[in-house]
C-alpha cells in the first residue's frame, strides 16, 4: 500500500472544507492517540479517531468518508475534552458526516423509515431526534 505524497495530494480542497466546517486546524494534531484511547465506542470503529485525522493530514479524505467510524461516534466529546492540543475530533466527525449527507454520496446510516416502531414508541424522543439529526442530517 504505497501512498504517493505531493503538495496536490496533501492540500486537498475537501480537507480544507472539513477544517472550515469543523472549525478545527487539522495540523494541530500531533498524533498522540489520546482521542482514540478514551473513545467509548472505539471498539466498533474501523479507523481510530486519531487515524482519521492522520489520513486527513495526508490528504486521504475519500478513505475517511467511506469509514464506519464517522457513523459510530456518539458525540460524547470525550476525545475533544482530553486532547492536549485542543483538537475537537467530535467536530471533525460532524463535518465529515455533513459532507457525506449534504452530497448524498452515501446512504445515511440511520434512515428515518428504518427507525423501528419499537424505538419510536419506547426510546426517549431526544434519542430518536438526536440520532436522526446526527446520522441522517
Amino acid at each position: 500500500m504505497r501512498l504517493r505524497l505531493s503538495r496536490e495530494v496533501i492540500k486537498d480542497d475537501l480537507v480544507r472544507r472539513v477544517e472550515d466546517l469543523s472549525g478545527q486546524n487539522i495540523a494541530m494534531c500531533y498524533q498522540c492517540g489520546r482521542c482514540s484511547a478514551g473513545c467509548p465506542v472505539v471498539d466498533e470503529m474501523d479507523i481510530l479517531p486519531s487515524e482519521v485525522i492522520r489520513l486527513l493530514q495526508l490528504g486521504q479524505i475519500e478513505e475517511v468518508l467511506d469509514s464506519k467510524t464517522i457513523w459510530i461516534c456518539a458525540s460524547c466529546l470525550q476525545c475533544a475534552s482530553r486532547c492536549p492540543r485542543g483538537v475537537e475530533f467530535s467536530s471533525i466527525c460532524d463535518a465529515l458526516r455533513a459532507i457525506v449527507l449534504r452530497r448524498r454520496i452515501a446512504t445515511p446510516s440511520v434512515d428515518a423509515g428504518d427507525v423501528s416502531r419499537v424505538m419510536v414508541t419506547d426510546a426517549p424522543q431526544m434519542g430518536v431526534v438526536g440520532a436522526l439529526r446526527k446520522l441522517n442530517g
Binding site: 467509548p40 465506542v41 459510530i72 456518539a74 426510546a123 434519542g127 430518536v128 446526527k134 446520522l135
Partner: peptide
C-alpha cells in the same frame, strides 16, 4: 463521566449497550 452510548442506541444497540454496561 463516561458515555452511556447516547443516541447510538437508535443506530446500533450493541455499541450503545456496551457503553452503558461499562
Amino acid at each position: 463521566t463516561e458515555c452511556c452510548g447516547g443516541f447510538q442506541i437508535v443506530r446500533d444497540e450493541e455499541t450503545a449497550i456496551a457503553c452503558s454496561q461499562t
